[in-house]
Design a binder for these strands. Structure first.
Length: 487
RNA sequence: GCUCCCAUCGUCUAGCCCGGUCUAGGACAUCGCCUUUUCACGGCGGUAACAGGGGUUCGAAUCCCCUUGGGAGUACCA
């Protein structure tokens, strides 16, 4: 039987980093074993669900490069529909079957009654389970009558009093004691199913073979095990992946800052890098490498290499991973991504040859794609020089005025928009021989004169990229500063 | 409270299932050196961990128990 896995988000907000990781694991596993990856929308919480979020989450998955084989937008008639809100009849049908088999019952208890029941159980030291009268089959006729009269009611599942054992692919053998859960609601009085019930009905009907999801569902699983049993359905394999935590070691949530995928998308993180980093948070590559693409994993992703403990989400390493992917990218792809970036305005005005050279130089200084135009603005287009102490010191050197005067003269002869590397080399040679300057005063003096900086990239690469007009302005400013300082 | 899960450098982890090859390996971060007549990139190296206590065993990071710590669940949310 071929593998079928699913990612089942609730459209109650943006796609979360943790959700993306779960989706990714499912996707990778499907790819690794030639299975099918299904997207199911769990929108049974009417108050919080929103169709707009469904769209946004799917967009984010696409951006990450996580593509589903089946879903609301790619239905397979055998399994459709893929939105739980469109499957209500199905849930009702199975709920009726459970009632007929005596495995579930109508429950008319009010919220107040339920609370009183709980309080009483607590006071008497009993398990906090349902002990209402409707569990007793002798009230079934009364229940039927009230239903017939049009009354709305919840349907509660009769939890078997026995222990269950789950063989989880990540956690190993997990045994749930026989008093862990009491009777629980499967159909709410508003006609909508509850998670632990409809999840099982769908997984059964959609023939899901492997459930890969967050550890927060580990305790829920006992309820689901009961439903599988009651429905006489085949059990899938379960893999409960550890949770992502913030720097305070609490489950990762909004208050930890940037936890929505779209935030990273807006900040131009590379989707491959996001996937790479997310995969690493709880799973290890068999070759112990840290940098890889999704397709690298298609042949070797497995459920065997998950770690059992939670992982802290760390921006530092994500930044490094992003930088590694950036450095491996083709210049053409980087240039292409930059065309839509507003902060790359100055960069985008240049011609193709210039851009190619600039990217080769600048990507060594960048962790993020947006660092490239940022560095271009700082190192190439900036005409306002900050008179830092270090720069003032260089200006104070005996040899520096000579360099500035000489270079200003040479620059005035230039009629092209850019200086060539050969011209720059000739100037350096002249300064060395005819001006008799050498060592630090030579190189740092020229750098200061031309760029207004003490440090930066190799001048032979940087200066041919810098517009002559800008260099002239810097030279002017510098010689003015020098004169003021002297006078 | 109760139940379940987890525990290796600051962080992500390898090793654990099938005890000896572990004076515990890699990566991020950090520090130092080399390279670059600068900076960054890169290269090399350093600091840094088996939570604690009991067992079992000739031998335990690895198996068992307890303690401690952390997390999750305990809804007519998912």
């Amino acid at each position: 039987m071929s593998v079928r896995v699913r990612f089942a988000p609730s459209p109650t907000g943006y796609l979360h980093i943790g959700g993306a990781r779960t989706a990714l694991y499912n996707y990778l596993y499907a790819k690794a074993v030639g299975g099918t990856f299904i997207l199911r929308i769990e929108d049974t919480d009417l108050e919080r669900s929103n169709a707009e979020y469904e769209k946004l989450q799917i967009d984010d998955l696409k951006w990450l490069g996580i593509f589903h084989d089946e879903g609301p937008d790619k239905p397979n008639p055998k399994y459709a529909p893929y939105r739980q809100s469109e499957r209500l009849e199905i849930y009702n049908k199975y709920a009726q079957q459970l009632i007929e088999k005596g495995l579930a019952y109508y429950d008319f208890c009010t919220e107040a009654e339920l609370e009183a029941m709980k309080a009483q159980n607590e006071a008497e030291g009993n398990d906090p389970h349902y002990t209402g009268k409707w569990r007793n089959s002798e009230h079934f006729a009364e229940a039927k009558a009230r239903i017939a009269a049009g009354e709305k009611t919840a349907i509660r599942f009769k939890a078997p009093k026995k222990s269950y054992t789950l063989n989880d692919k990540v956690k190993g053998s997990v045994t749930y004691p026989d008093n862990m859960v009491g009777d629980f609601v499967i159909m709410r009085s508003n006609g909508l199913p509850t998670y632990n019930y409809c999840c099982v009905v769908d997984d059964m009907l959609m023939e899901i073979t492997h459930v890969i999801r967050g550890e927060d569902h580990l305790n829920n699983t006992v309820r689901q095990l009961m439903i599988y049993e009651a429905l006489n359905a085949k059990l899938p394999e379960f893999a409960h992946v550890s949770l992502l935590i913030g720097s305070d070691r609490q489950k990762l949530s909004k208050r930890h800052g940037a936890t929505s995928v779209n935030l990273y998308r807006n900040e131009n993180y590379l989707p491959e890098a996001m996937c790479n980093y997310l995969t690493l948070l709880g799973w290890s590559h068999p070759a112990e490498t840290d940098i890889f693409t999704k397709s690298d994993l298609f042949s070797l992703f497995s459920l065997e290499r998950f770690s059992a403990h939670s992982a802290m989400y760390d921006l530092e390493k994500l930044k490094w991973v992003n930088g590694q992917h950036l450095k491996k990218m083709e210049n053409a792809d980087i240039i292409n991504m930059l065309t839509t970036l507003p902060e790359a305005a100055a960069f985008n005005k240049q011609d193709a040859a210039w851009k190619n050279m600039a990217v080769t130089l600048l990507k060594q200084y960048a962790d993020f794609i947006s660092d490239i135009p940022k560095k271009a603005d700082e190192m190439i287009f900036d005409e306002h020089i900050e008179m830092k102490n270090e720069l003032l010191e260089i200006l104070g050197w005996e040899t520096t005025p000579k360099i500035i005067d000489y270079l200003a003269g040479e620059m005035n002869k230039i009629t092209t928009p850019f200086v060539t590397e050969a011209e720059l080399t000739a100037w350096m040679d002249f300064a060395k021989k005819d001006l008799a300057i050498k060592g630090k005063p030579l190189f740092q003096g020229i750098r200061a004169a031309l760029t207004g900086q003490e440090h930066g990239p190799d001048l032979k690469l940087l200066i041919p990229l810098t517009p002559v007009a800008i260099i002239k302005k810097r030279l002017n400013l510098l010689s003015k500063t020098k004169q003021e300082k002297d006078g």
